[in-house]
């Protein structure tokens, strides 16, 4: 346990030093703030609770940005250290490989969580400061949006590690990471949508559709946040999908957690067999 924390601490130290932490926090805060204030203008505050609008726009931001940031930090974690030669020395120390991996995971996830919490928190804080009345239900939805965003980040960090543990060169890892991002964030949903249109609800419905949605962590995240509370789903445009799926929030969260744990376990396995 202590080894994990030691490695995590070094990872955070490095993140602070090479300004990863600063850059991601600023980026998320800037985008969140602009979405909050630009996005709330046209709705005109009529019958719509301001924070719920923010939740919708921020979760769309999350789907695009957090997987990208997570993959950027993680794809290099193993293969990069091997190429630079620092892994050789680290593994000659009294520390197991799975501890190194888990330590990096804790470190990277902390960086991501810190940036998300601060960036999105700033948006909510600014909204509250403008005098908006925000009820408890909205706050809960907002908090669970941040929590699930971090979980989505964890999933993509784990996927990045798996890639990093499997490939021989950093360049390959970067290429695959970009491919994974494109697939999960853009292509998968477009393909699914296309299928749904063509299929007209013949085959693709119920269980199969649910399974297909759970097979993409970003979809699980989207469903969790946009259909989770009635208020949010009403104007997120997801009402239609929400009716066709019968996935409860706990199933969606479990899917996200599985998306984090499974690749992490596989990455640990692949890493333990690597020779360097």
């Amino acid at each position: 346990m202590r080894n994990i924390l030691i490695v995590a601490r070094k990872e955070i130290q490095e993140g602070l030093r090479n300004r990863w932490v600063l850059a991601t926090t600023l980026l998320l805060a800037a985008l969140a703030l602009s979405l909050t204030f630009l996005g709330s203008a046209p709705t005109g505050n009529v019958g719509v609770r301001a924070l719920d609008v923010v939740i919708v726009s921020l979760s769309s931001l999350t789907i695009f940005l957090l997987p990208l940031i997570a993959l950027l930090i993680s794809h290099d974690a193993i293969v990069g250290e091997m190429e630079r030669g620092t892994m050789l020395l680290l593994l000659s120390y009294p520390v197991a490989r799975w501890q190194v991996l888990l330590g990096k995971f804790v470190g990277h996830l902390s960086i991501l969580a810190f940036a998300t919490l601060l960036g999105y928190g700033a948006a909510a804080g600014a909204l509250a400061a403008t005098g908006e009345v925000i009820d408890r239900e909205s706050w809960t939805a907002f908090a669970s949006m941040i929590g699930s965003s971090i979980l989505l980040g964890a999933a993509f960090i784990a996927v990045g590690y798996l890639v990093s543990a499997l490939v021989r060169e950093r360049g390959t890892a970067a290429g695959i990471a970009i491919g994974i991002w494109l697939v999960f964030v853009l292509i998968y949903d477009m393909a699914l949508l296309g299928l749904l249109v063509v299929d007209q609800g013949q085959v693709l419905s119920g269980g199969l559709l649910n399974a297909l949605l759970l097979l993409n962590p970003t979809d699980a995240y989207r469903l969790f946040n946009l259909t989770g509370s009635g208020n949010v789903s009403a104007f997120s445009g997801m009402a239609g999908v929400a009716q066709t799926t019968t996935l409860g929030p706990s199933v969606l969260l479990a899917a996200l957690a599985a998306w984090a744990l499974l690749p992490l376990g596989l990455a640990a396995l692949a890493f333990s067999r690597r020779e360097l």
Partner: peptide, 9 residues
Amino acid sequence: PENVSFNAA
């Protein structure tokens, strides 16, 4: 190691 390297940061 023969080519020892450390994190530059």
